[in-house]
Simulated scan of single mutants.
Amino acid sequence: MKKIFLALIAATVIGAPMAQAQDFRHGPDRHRTVTVEKKRVVTTHRWTKGHRMSPAERRRMAEVRDYRRYRLSAPPRGYHWVRADNQFLLVGITSGIISSIIAGR
Rank of each mutant, 00 (worst) to 15 (best):
M1D: 14
M1S: 11
K3T: 12
K3V: 15
I4D: 05
I4G: 06
A7F: 12
A7K: 05
I9L: 09
A10D: 06
A11Q: 05
T12E: 13
T12I: 10
I14W: 12
A16H: 09
A19D: 05
A19Y: 07
A19P: 01
A21Y: 08
A21N: 10
D23W: 14
D23V: 15
R25E: 06
H26S: 15
H26A: 08
H26P: 03
G27S: 04
D29S: 12
R32W: 05
V34D: 07
T35L: 08
E37T: 12
E37N: 15
K38A: 12
K39N: 13
K39T: 14
V41P: 04
V41E: 09
V42N: 13
T44M: 15
T48G: 07
T48I: 15
T48K: 10
K49S: 14
G50W: 06
H51T: 15
H51R: 12
H51I: 12
R52T: 11
M53Y: 01
M53T: 02
E57N: 00
E63H: 14
V64N: 01
R65S: 07
R65Y: 11
D66A: 07
D66P: 04
R68Q: 06
R68N: 03
R68K: 14
Y70Q: 02
Y70K: 08
R71W: 11
S73E: 11
P75N: 00
P76S: 07
Y79T: 00
H80K: 09
V82A: 03
A84S: 12
D85K: 03
N86A: 12
N86L: 10
N86Q: 15
F88C: 01
L89D: 02
V91W: 00
G92S: 08
T94R: 08
S95T: 07
G96Q: 00
I98P: 00
S100C: 06
I102Q: 02
R105A: 10
